[in-house]
Amino acid sequence: MSVFKRSSRDAMAGGPAVVLDANEPEIKVEHVSVRFDGKKGAAPVVALQDVSLDIRQGEFISLVGPSGCGKTTLLRTIADLQQPSSGRITVRGQTPREIRLQKKYGIVFQNPVLYDWRTVRRNVCMPMELKGVPKKTRTATVTEMLELVGLYHFGKKYPHELSGGMQQRVGIARALAIKPEILLMDEPFSALDEFTKEKLNEDLLKIWNKTNKTILFVTHNISEAVFLSDRVVVLSPHPGRVSAIVDITLPRPRGLAIKNTPEFGALVAKVRNSFEGV
């Protein structure tokens, strides 16, 4: 731990933060394992075992797998919400912790986690308040973000007055409000119905197109992963490990119609077939 800290501090001291080589991956996951201590006497649960993964800047990458495969754990480890038991993660040449403290992460959970005592606008505002963004900029950014997710007219509403899909949009607007470099999404649409989910999938691609963020997207829905991603990382459980990485070669921009093409069907089948023993 201390080794990482020192090296990155040196990097920061050495002038403008790390300039990324075009070929250098933005997120480097190297031989990461995560173990949770079991109950008294029981063996520790291995959530991730020797996972390595490179994510390029601006890439849309999905982690898919059945429950217990460690996909959420991997996202949480990159987000510095969970510490790896061994191995290391480098984000833009720094540790996840440093990236988090520089507020370069945006995160969206399955549950929208809105503050129910704040209106939609003030919810989107929250991370900027914490970052100390001046009020004028905040107001402008909130408007911009709500327009981006198509909720401009709902700014004065309270979260409970919105549908599940709208709440999740607010969550995305909030995550984007601090202009993060990397957007981490942990099963953001899994609680929504199929129609809402497809609509939000399409919108998410538009937003990604406009903002050009790196997106790490966790889901258990194969079709959703194929539709959205540049690459789909397939994880297998017990212990969680990468069992395949499937390149999604479908053309962009993608519309929902692409789901009817044989190429799409073939890629879904390819992802499905790469699960081991499930």
Binding site: Y115, M126, L130
Partner: peptide, 27 residues
Amino acid sequence: LKPYSEDLMKSYAARRTDVFFKLRVPN
């Protein structure tokens, strides 16, 4: 607190006082 709301605060790198006054107290 609601599940994940502390994680969210952590991802914003919020200070303890911020978590207290903006999350815990209103909650």
